[in-house]
Amino acid sequence: MNRVAERFQELKRAGRKAFIPYIMGGDPDLPRLPRILESLAATGVDLIEVGVPFSDPLADGPVIQAAGQRALRHGCTLTKLLTALKPVASSLPVPLLLMIYYNQIFQRGTARFLEEVKAAGGAGLIIPDLPPEAAGELSRLAADFEISLNFLVAPTSQAERIRMVATASTGFVYTVSVKGVTGAREQLPPELPAFVQRVKTLSPRPVAVGFGIATPDQARMVSRLADGVVVGSAIVQAIAEDTELKKMASLVKALREAI
């Protein structure tokens, strides 16, 4: 079993919900990456999602787009990011997920990419522009490398699709809370509880909800519905506003207490 699925099992046994913060790899810069990851781990987060900066991040809203552009401007590449993750990942008690757009995997070659992710200590992948029906080779190889694939469902997904996506996912089902892109929303959609419940009923895998969740109150509400909560833009924004990371640390602490 892969480490992501294992982590969800441990949490289930303990009666707890997963808190999954997202950060943009290489923002504000790569030398600060170990400190960010260690600070998150010390706050007791359960998994960490690291975004790989990309020229055309279709699924991302303005905050994460801007963070990705900063990282690219500072010369962050996939190779450099994996190199920076390697020394810190092995000592980190938290599985790392990469959120990455598919062209980056495709250009590297699937097998080589998985090998490098494995060597860097990565435990799972979230690929927002790759539906499971186009992931044949990746799905086969990822299983060999024990790297989890976590596909996405959206509020527009019908039952049959939710079942298919969940079955193809080997860690959790990434359940997108809103119609649209990443980024804090003042209010989550009123249909969210019913939607998450529907996914839970149809999915044999744990259900983590992301997109739009920014505040401890929202995180608390979602943690009551789902097996895990992803918070991205709010944390990325906190890092951008205070590169000394104090703002991030206090937000993450408040989110942890809420989940």
Partner: peptide, 10 residues
């Protein structure tokens, strides 16, 4: 076919 660098950036 796409103009993309070896790192996968378009």
């Amino acid at each position: 076919y796409l103009l993309s660098d070896s790192d996968g950036q378009v």
